[in-house]
């Protein structure tokens, strides 16, 4: 469980990035942190694995304050997948890349071997085991980076802008994968401004603006409130835009997903004809 209590954070330059955040993320929850660039999204999630320590207030991971534990220790529980895989890949082979963290954590050889194979399979990159990560395509590098975090099976997984630079199919694969992780009772926190992605996953959403949480709730509540979204520099999902235009027909206005939309429209059309 992640608990954020009255969290303030100022960068050493004096820039106040977070101004009083209160938040609880339960085990097994799927949370999307949304908002404009510079709203403090990444600054907030960097507190979850202790990369940043609160200026005031507290962040508790499973009841332990992040102030009292090293990043290396917290990382065992909280895996953090950075936006750009090129910011972490450095090994000669994919296999070594994935083993890197496991070695840092002091796992035994046999366990490392087992976990690496497991992670390679999980992300469907087994065939590249001996390949240099630098030879892979963008989408594959992203999966290797993901595998290198999931290899130690952390309970909480944070993904910073996972969909940036991904094409439609890669995005769809990623989405299924994230949903699957969540289905396996992992806590998933995604930082993103990709509305369509969030609309398809329908997680709990917090909307941030200027270092504060603007609103906290289900995606279908938040993504269908254009005024609220505008404050966070986000536009409603396409389906929502269509349904908002049709509000005068008495159709529900909290539709974000194309399948739900189809069902609602069919019911309406069939019910009346």
């Amino acid at each position: 469980m992640l608990e954020v209590k009255d969290l303030f954070y100022a960068y050493p330059t004096g820039l106040e990035a977070l101004k009083g955040i209160n938040l609880t993320v339960d085990d097994g929850e799927f949370l999307a942190v949304m908002g404009q660039n510079g709203a403090g999204k990444t600054t907030l999630v960097k507190h979850f694995n202790g990369l940043l320590k609160p200026t005031s207030g507290e962040v508790l991971v499973d009841g332990v304050s992040t102030r009292d534990v090293s990043v290396a220790k917290l990382a065992r529980t909280v895996g953090f997948v950075f936006q750009n895989p090129d910011h972490q890949l450095f090994s000669e082979s994919v296999e070594e890349e994935i083993a890197f963290a496991l070695k840092n954590f002091g796992f035994e050889e046999t366990v490392i071997e087992k976990q690496v194979t497991w992670a390679l399979n999980l992300l469907d990159v087994l065939e590249y085991r001996k390949t240099s990560p630098f030879m892979l395509s963008g989408g594959e590098r992203k999966r290797v980076a993901l595998a290198s975090i999931l290899a130690w099976d952390p309970n909480v997984i944070i993904l910073d802008e996972p969909t940036i630079g991904q094409d439609h199919q890669q995005k769809e694969k990623l989405q299924q994968f994230i949903l699957q992780l969540n289905a396996q009772k992992k806590t998933v926190v995604v930082v993103t401004h990709d509305v369509e992605f969030v609309a398809e996953c329908n997680p709990r959403v917090i909307l941030m603006r200027q270092g504060k949480v603007l609103v906290d709730g289900k995606a279908e509540k938040i993504l269908t409130d254009p005024e609220l979204l505008l404050q966070a520099s986000i536009v409603p999902p396409q389906i929502t835009q269509i349904f908002l235009e049709l509000a005068d027909f008495g159709l529900p206005t909290d539709v974000i997903d194309v399948h739900v939309a189809t069902k609602v429209l069919l019911n309406r059309l069939r019910g009346q004809s």
Binding site: L51, V71, A72, A101, N104
Partner: peptide, 28 residues
Amino acid sequence: DAQKARGLELERGNLFKRVRNYIPILIP
């Protein structure tokens, strides 16, 4: 930050080890 999140501890070990700790940062 990305390497720390994978358990890299820069200040760990003897001098030689510490220099080696910077490889995962220098290469990327």
